[in-house]
């Protein structure tokens, strides 16, 4: 199960970056970045998964004493939790810049923005 998720995550990263590199529309490039973002999160969570273990939350079915033997690695989950939130902040920033660029040129085609091209 972890292997399938890991492979899916890697493939999502590749698909997302391919989209971001080949598309000419700014919004479609941002879509590609968000897909790559999901892929990275999936890879990190899949690495922390251990077969036959449960979520790291102590309750009536999981006493604190049994936790070390029965929970999966909680550290990747804490990392991904913050990564998702940062991801949406970055996406909002990219979209705001795309809006400003559209305001300047009335198009979202990346090939028309040639001011910094050499």
């Amino acid at each position: 199960m972890a292997q399938i998720s890991l492979a899916t995550g890697f493939l999502l990263i590749l698909i997302g970056f391919y989209g971001a590199l080949t598309q000419r529309n700014l919004m479609r490039m941002i879509v590609g970045f968000t897909i790559a973002d999901s892929g990275v999160n999936l890879v990190i969570v899949a690495i922390g998964y251990m077969h036959g273990r449960t979520a790291p939350i102590i309750d009536s079915t999981l006493p604190a004493g049994e936790a070390p033997a029965r929970i999966i690695d909680p550290v990747p989950q804490a990392l991904v939790l913050t990564a998702i939130v940062i991801g949406v902040g970055v996406t909002a920033l990219m979209l705001a810049y795309a809006y400003k660029l559209y305001q300047a040129k009335r198009t979202l085609d990346i090939s028309t923005f040639t001011e910094l091209k050499w």
Binding site: M1, R53, V88, L95
Partner: peptide, 24 residues
């Protein structure tokens, strides 16, 4: 959720799939 990470699943559902789509 299947990978035993309910915290991450909640974050992804609320933020990754909800708010991001609306921003777009």
């Amino acid at each position: 959720l299947l990978l035993a990470s309910p915290d991450v699943a909640m974050t992804e559902a609320a933020i990754g799939s909800g708010l991001t789509t609306f921003l777009f």
